[in-house]
């Protein structure tokens, strides 16, 4: 019989160590949730998991045609297909993880009212699926870059770090907003608007080099912009923005820590609100 003693007190929240130990104990639930979501997502579909790759490819195809061939947006010496692929793949994965995590408390209200498990697990399982989506899309980007003969080893080596930044940023923002989304349904109305603005604030459709000098700092402070720009720079050989990257690392993991802290503090109150 285990002698582990769990203490729950009104005055004291769980310790960081206890939290990590618990997440570790529930790690198999992360996999269970993510494989469940994957199955449900492709249940009764004809193409099944092919959709993981079809979604970014179709988006990128349209962008290449409209923005590349018709409008002829400057693409920093990169083929349009590659230029848009390395932006859209992180973006789609980021936005999925962020919105799913943000609505995780609200969407699982019935579950949270009936059973205890570390609530962080839900967001973590979204991150796992977001990473799978990303890796499939990334493989496509690698293949296309190789076909154009511009693939560099640095592009492959930097990927894990850039993926970590992107995920920490998405999860941090998602965890931070999740309790507010559950409590004030206004959040749900504002966020789609902000996402649209953020889409244009990130250098997805265009290159940072097009931005006026006074607005350049916006791309330095935005972790996702740094992620996208770095992918492009590693392929076209332009110098890297080390300040932006260092800041992206600090900001995204800082956001993750803050988001988790807020989430943990508010999450149990939310059950009484849901």
């Amino acid at each position: 019989m285990s002698t582990r003693i769990t203490t729950v007190s009104a005055s004291r929240g769980p310790s960081l160590r206890g939290l990590l130990a618990e997440l570790w104990a529930y790690r198999s639930l992360v996999w269970a949730f993510s494989s469940r979501d994957l199955k449900i997502k492709y249940f009764q579909t004809i193409f099944g998991p092919l959709w993981i790759i079809l979604t970014p490819l179709i988006t990128v195809g349209v962008m290449t045609f409209v923005l590349g061939l018709m409008i002829k947006v400057p693409s920093d010496d990169l083929p349009y297909l590659v230029f848009y692929l390395v932006a859209i793949v992180p973006w789609l994965s980021f936005i999925t993880v962020f919105t799913q995590t943000m609505t995780s408390l609200e969407a699982h209200g019935a579950l949270l009212n009936k059973i205890y498990f570390p609530r962080l697990v839900i967001g973590a399982s979204y991150a796992v699926n977001g990473a799978i989506d990303f890796l499939v899309g990334f493989a496509a980007a690698v293949a296309v870059a190789a076909a154009y003969g511009i693939l560099t080893p640095q592009f492959l080596l930097a990927m894990p770090v850039l993926l970590a930044i992107q995920m920490a940023w998405a999860l941090g923002l998602g965890y931070f907003l999740a309790p507010y989304n559950a409590q004030f349904r206004d959040v749900k109305h504002i966020v789609p608007l902000l996402i649209q603005l953020y889409y244009f604030a990130c250098p997805i459709l265009y290159a940072v080099s097009l931005a006026p000098a006074w607005a350049k700092w916006l791309y330095t402070v935005n972790p996702l912009a740094s992620v996208i720009t770095t992918y492009r720079s590693l392929l076209n050989g332009h110098p890297l923005d080390w300040t932006g990257l260092a800041w992206a690392l600090v900001a995204s993991f800082g956001m993750l820590a803050w988001g988790v802290a807020v989430f943990m503090r508010k999450e149990q109150e939310m059950v009484d609100v849901l």
Binding site: T3, I5, T6, V8, Q268
Partner: peptide
């Protein structure tokens, strides 16, 4: 069941606790 937090006081338990509310 640790679904909601107490306003005052607390409790502790030994070992693994499973609750079946549903």
């Amino acid at each position: 069941s640790r679904i909601t937090r107490p306003t005052e006081g607390g409790f502790r338990f030994r070992g693994h606790l499973i609750s079946l509310l549903e």
